[in-house]
Design a protein around this nucleic acid. Structure first.
Lengths: 144, 144
DNA sequence: GTGACGATATTCTCCAATAAACATAAGTAT
DNA sequence: ATACTTATGTTTATTGGAGAATATCGTCAC
């Protein structure tokens, strides 16, 4: 399971290094794809397969299912982790997530997420404000 | 069960030593997360896992679920307790809880909390005031 | 009060991770 | 083919974390 938040930078060639704590679990090949809420999802290749199969089930059903499938399947990009622990992120994915030079790499359960630093700040601040209400609506404990 | 309140300091590398009374119960690995009321929660690793699994269930479904998962999972940091009983607190967690150099380490049942010294002072004073008010209102309703 | 012990604080050094710079290889177009 | 661009790989430097050693403080025993 991926947890934690790290700040990394893109080099001029659109490469970004992955946190060393994530590398073992991510493996040698990863899948980068469009995520929800304007971020990118990064999956270990094996985990991606399961995700893709789940999506495929909905690829012809509802309009929402088709949309999500197209977004994530068509947007997927296979990336090799190089010897320095970096991956190359294609331009179309960078611009989808409005990624600048500074990015936040966040571990969220079975996937890793890439966020623009500013977008992450805005997003987390919003969630923090509503955290109590959200927790109640999900009737889950936030640890209190 | 953790009880008691201690004053510790962060060194220049963002490390803080844990009260020796807590060390045995905390174990060798702990999880530091965003807590409620602008403090940090520190859990023994095993205790945190249960929380995490509940959150993980919601990590893709609804927008609210994703938000909470991101806040609590990406906000979590696994920390090893070193030979001197210290843990490293990442910058983003320190700034979340507005932690300066002096901190209060408080035992609260199943978790340990980290507070900025000033924030702790303000918070406890507020609670004390509320407690007085509550006591008064109780004695009014129960008295004669 | 004095000494001894345990806990916390501080500092230093070493090592790993990251970022930046640089070099090489592979295409592409003229 | 040659110059130019783009992609990929390697090297170096800087930053930050892990560990160890020393110093300080407080507590308890005597």
């Amino acid at each position: 399971m991926f947890i934690g938040e790290y700040r990394h930078t893109f080099d001029t060639k659109n490469r970004i290094s992955l946190p060393s704590k994530f590398r073992k679990e991510l493996g040698k090949q990863v899948i980068v794809t469009r995520g929800l809420d304007r971020c990118l999802f990064v999956y270990p290749k094996a985990a991606w397969k399961k995700e893709a199969e789940a999506l495929a089930k909905h690829s012809t059903g509802s309009a929402a299912g088709r949309g999500l499938s197209r977004l994530m399947l068509a947007g997927a990009s296979e990336a090799d982790v190089d010897s320095a622990g970096r991956i190359l992120v294609p331009d179309y994915l960078k611009s989808f997530a409005t990624l600048g030079v500074k990015a936040v790499v966040a571990g969220v359960n079975e996937r890793v997420e890439l966020w623009d630093e500013d977008a992450w700040k805005t997003y987390t601040e919003t969630i923090e404000r509503d955290a109590d209400a959200l927790a109640e609506s999900l009737s889950m404990s936030t640890g209190k």
